[in-house]
């Protein structure tokens, strides 16, 4: 009786754990099957080489490059903002800051990650863009720059907290060895601590890039809906995610070729982030092994 109960409980728990596997399988199946219907109509070559993306217009082009360009542009801007600031925070908190300061500041920084992205979108559109327009004449109301900057602010905590963990994991003895040889704190940080924590820091940066690529609401609100093969940050662009939102919130009929574009673009997004996440996972696994 007791044995049977234990058995049933174990299998029940296993079932719950398997739901995560089913989720992944579901994502892959849904994206692949629906994308296949799309690629029956539009050749993969066109999809990857056409330089225009206009599925919702009368003259249709299905080139994903403009969406990728928009995604790439906003992501680069975000990383340029988040990486130095996030690293600065991580180094300061792990090497310089007093412990009590760390304890109060960390939950506050975590709040940055807790703010809903739609709220960041509002911030980008209503605060950052008007402010930047005073500095940069010719900045469009919708533009990659504000969206990217605000996205950078959003991912600061990802970089700072993962990097800080990595810096923290560097054994004290290593630092003491550097100090013992007369290094200053600065030299120790750059010559010993950061190199030792490099894989953890790399993992955090890759994860942040993946996060930026997948981020949706900020770009949907503030970057515009103009897919174009441009790397000009002051112009409106459209990212993959923003395009999916545009189709979903419009009245494109389900089952039409126009609607199936969200699966084709969705699978591109999934593959892109999947590769980045895997690299990050692999790199950080390696660093965990290093000090265990």
């Amino acid at each position: 009786m007791l044995k049977a109960k234990e058995y049933i409980i174990e299998k029940g728990l296993l079932l719950c754990a398997l739901i995560t596997a089913l989720t992944t399988i579901g994502i892959i199946l849904v994206l692949t099957i629906e994308a296949i219907t799309f690629f029956k109509e539009i050749s993969l070559v066109d999809f990857l080489t056409d330089t225009q993306w206009t599925p919702l217009y009368s003259e249709k082009h299905f080139g994903v490059l403009p969406l990728l360009a928009g995604t790439f542009l906003t992501t680069v801007i975000a990383i340029l903002v988040a990486l130095p600031i996030g690293m600065g925070i991580a180094i300061y908190l792990s090497e310089y800051a007093p412990k009590s300061f760390r304890k109060t500041i960390k939950p506050l920084l975590e709040l940055l990650a807790a703010v809903p992205t739609v709220v960041y979108g509002f911030f980008a559109l209503m605060v950052v863009t008007p402010f930047l327009q005073k500095i940069i004449p010719g900045l469009s109301g919708f533009n990659a720059l504000s969206a990217g900057i605000v996205m950078g602010v959003m991912i600061i905590p990802f970089i700072s907290s993962m990097s800080e963990d990595a810096l923290h994991a560097v054994p004290k003895s290593l630092r003491e060895a550097a100090y013992g040889m007369g290094s200053t704190r600065l030299q120790t940080v750059f010559k010993v601590t950061i190199p030792s924590a490099s894989s953890g820091i790399t993992a955090s940066a890759i994860l942040a890039i993946s996060r930026a690529i997948g981020e949706t609401m900020i770009v949907a609100i503030a970057a515009g809906q103009m897919p174009g093969l441009t790397f000009n940050p002051i112009k409106p662009v459209q990212t993959i995610t923003a395009y999916i939102v545009q189709v979903s919130s419009g009245d494109v009929p389900f089952g039409s070729l126009e609607h199936s574009t969200i699966f084709a673009t969705g699978i591109s997004l999934f593959v892109l982030t999947f590769i980045l996440n895997s690299i990050s996972f692999w790199v950080s696994k390696k660093y965990h092994r290093q000090y265990e």
């Binding site: 992944t24 994206l31 999916i244 699966f263 996972f281």
Partner: peptide, 25 residues
């Protein structure tokens, strides 16, 4: 091991992809 890697990966899947999954399923 497989489930652990899978969960780490799922945590990084963009939320909008979950939307596509939910729409279909």
């Amino acid at each position: 091991n497989l489930l652990e890697i899978n969960i780490a990966n799922l945590a990084g899947v963009p939320s909008i992809i979950y939307g596509i999954l939910g729409l279909e399923i």
